[in-house]
Simulated scan of single mutants.
Amino acid sequence: MKNLTSEEKLKLQFKGFLATPPLWKEKDLIRFPEFLMTEVIRDLKVDLKIPANLVLGRRIEYFFRYYIDEFSRHRTLAANLQIIQEKITLGELDFLLQDKISAEISHVELVYKFYLYDPSISTEMERWIGPNRRDSLVRKLDRLTRHQFPLLYRKETRETLKSLQIDPQEVSQKICFKAHLFLPYSQPDLKPTGVNAECISGRWLHYLKFTKREFGDHLFYLPKKENWPVDPKFNKQWLDYEEIYPQLQHLLLLKHAPLIWLKTGVDSFDRIFVVWW
C-alpha cells in the first residue's frame, strides 16, 4: 500500500472497519446485548482526521466515533471516559451514546479483535486465541463482564457522570464486538460453534509449513497492523516468496505472528497468519 496517500489508506481502513462483521449473530456470548451498526451508508465520503502513528485499537475508536457522529442516529456524549480514584485510574468507559430519537443513553464497550482457532484446546470457546497467544476470547469476555461493565456503577463513576447529568441507573449497556477469525490452514472446512461464521477471514499455519513448495506460486504483502482491517484486493504492490520470506523471518524471531496478504490469482486474494509457536 506504499503507493497510496495517508488519506487513501485511512479511508480503506475505515471501510474495512465498517465491513467487519459482529462476532455473534442472534445469540449473545455474554448477557449484554450487541450494539449493531445497522445504518446503510450509500455515499461514503470520509473526512476523518486522526493523530499519526495511532495503534490499531485507538484507531478503531476514532473510526467508531466518526461513524456514530456522521452516519448513525446516535450522538456521542463521552468517549474514553476515565474513572479515577485518588489519582489512580480504575478504568474507562469506552463510549456514552444517546439515541437522537428515543433519547436512550447507552454505555457501549467497543472491541475489535483478530483470533485464531486452535483445535488442540479442549473447550470450544477457549480455542479462540490471539495470534501470539497473549490473549483469548474467553479472557476478553471475562474482563468485560467482571470489570468493564460493572465500572458504570461504581461510586467514583457516579461522581464523574454527575457533570454530564447522567444517572447510571438509567443507562443501558451494550457491546460492539467486531472480529476477524482464522481457521487452521489444513482444516479450512471446520465449523466452530457459538460465533458468527461471517467473521471467518482467512487461515493460519506454523512457519515451517510456509514453504516455497506450497506457496512459491503466490504473491505476498506484509501489511502494517494499522492496515489489517483493509481488504487485500486494494493492495497494488506485491512481492514473491523470496522477497517476503526475510521480512517474515525477522518478525518470527521477535515472536510476532504476522498477518500476510496473498494474491493467488488475477482477482483472488487471501489472508493468513504465520505463527511462531
Rank of each mutant, 00 (worst) to 15 (best):
T5R: 05
S6P: 00
S6A: 14
E7I: 14
E8D: 04
K11G: 04
F14P: 09
K15N: 11
G16M: 09
A19C: 03
A19F: 03
D28C: 09
I30G: 07
F35K: 10
M37K: 11
E39D: 14
R42F: 13
R42C: 11
R42T: 14
K49A: 13
I50V: 15
I50R: 07
A52D: 15
V55P: 14
L56K: 01
G57V: 02
R58G: 01
E61W: 05
Y62K: 10
F63L: 07
F63D: 10
F63K: 10
D69Q: 15
F71I: 11
S72D: 13
R73S: 15
T76A: 13
N80C: 09
Q85P: 00
T89L: 06
D94E: 05
F95P: 11
D99H: 14
S102D: 14
E104K: 15
I105A: 06
I105N: 08
H107F: 09
H107I: 10
V108N: 04
E109M: 07
L110H: 03
K113R: 08
Y115V: 01
L116E: 01
D118W: 01
S120D: 14
R127S: 06
W128G: 03
W128Y: 07
P131A: 04
N132D: 12
N132Q: 05
N132P: 05
R133C: 02
R139G: 15
L144R: 02
R146D: 14
R146T: 15
H147T: 12
H147V: 13
F149K: 11
P150Y: 04
P150S: 06
L152M: 10
R154L: 15
R154A: 07
L161S: 12
L164E: 08
I166R: 03
I166G: 06
I166Y: 08
D167S: 12
Q169I: 00
I175G: 12
C176H: 10
K178N: 02
A179K: 07
Q187M: 13
Q187C: 02
L190H: 01
P192M: 09
P192A: 04
P192Y: 01
V195A: 03
A197Q: 13
A197E: 13
C199I: 05
S201K: 06
S201W: 00
G202V: 01
W204V: 00
W204Q: 04
L205R: 05
H206Y: 12
H206R: 10
Y207A: 08
K209V: 00
T211P: 08
T211A: 09
T211S: 15
K212Y: 10
F215R: 03
F220Y: 03
K224S: 15
W228V: 05
D231R: 00
K233V: 11
F234T: 07
L239K: 11
D240M: 04
Y241I: 07
E242P: 00
E243Q: 13
Y245M: 09
Y245K: 12
Q247R: 14
Q247S: 09
Q247I: 00
Q249Y: 10
H250S: 11
H250Q: 13
K255Y: 04
H256G: 00
P258H: 07
P258S: 05
I260M: 04
W261D: 06
L262M: 05
T264P: 02
V266K: 09
S268T: 10
D270T: 00
F273D: 03
W277K: 12
